[in-house]
Design a binder for these strands. Structure first.
Lengths: 100, 100
DNA sequence: GTATCGTACAACCAAATGGTTGTAGATCAG
DNA sequence: CTGATCTACAACCATTTGGTTGTACGATAC
């Protein structure tokens, strides 16, 4: 979980997620889009991969990056859980107010 | 957004969120729960506050911490957006397969 | 008033982060 | 074969992070 949210906590990485979720791309293809070195983008992709937010697959001399739906869902599920806790509490408060 | 996900990328902070979402607590009340100094917990709360995930309110000499629903929803909304992009793509692929 | 409690904040430290450059190995094009 | 491309990885650097201790100050209890 730490790795998951840590991976999401960077604008460049969130942008990469958006792109590779919409359509696959090579690492160099991604690197061309940002004002930073290839190695920096490579590191960002590695962070996303460790967090299960993207997958890499070798194709010829390129490495194809794709969005990993599982990782996103995992993050969403935790936030949904917090949401449920909040609603539960809001419900309790509503009950108390209704009683009073 | 960076601050939001960064704030969520720590187990202690996610635990604090869970607790103060379920029911308010003072900073020292929270500090008692973790095997770290008061100052460390204080810093965690500050990070959560900057990310709009909790709010603080002075009450007597205590500082009461509560969950901030807005911040959580903001994070959820972004993940929902990614989800939508993914479904859109999945839909396109389904269409292409249907055509073929 | 005095002591204690809850908080704020500064200074410090080790480790992680986000970036760089440079080197080297595969793979493809001519 | 040679050269260009794509990737991997190490070494390095500045900044941030997550933790510590110590000091100070307002609010409460006695």
């Amino acid at each position: 979980m730490d790795r998951l949210f840590q991976a999401l906590a960077d604008t460049t990485r969130r942008d990469i997620i958006r792109r590779v979720t919409a359509g696959e791309s090579s690492v160099s293809g991604l690197a061309d889009l940002y004002a930073m070195s290839f190695a920096a983008v490579q590191k960002h992709v590695a962070v996303l991969e460790r967090a299960s937010l993207v997958t890499k697959e070798k194709r010829g001399r390129e490495q194809i990056v794709r969005g990993d739906h599982e990782g996103l869902q995992k993050a969403r599920r935790l936030l949904d859980e917090y949401e449920a806790i909040w609603r539960q509490r809001a419900g309790r408060i509503a009950d108390i107010l209704a009683e009073g």
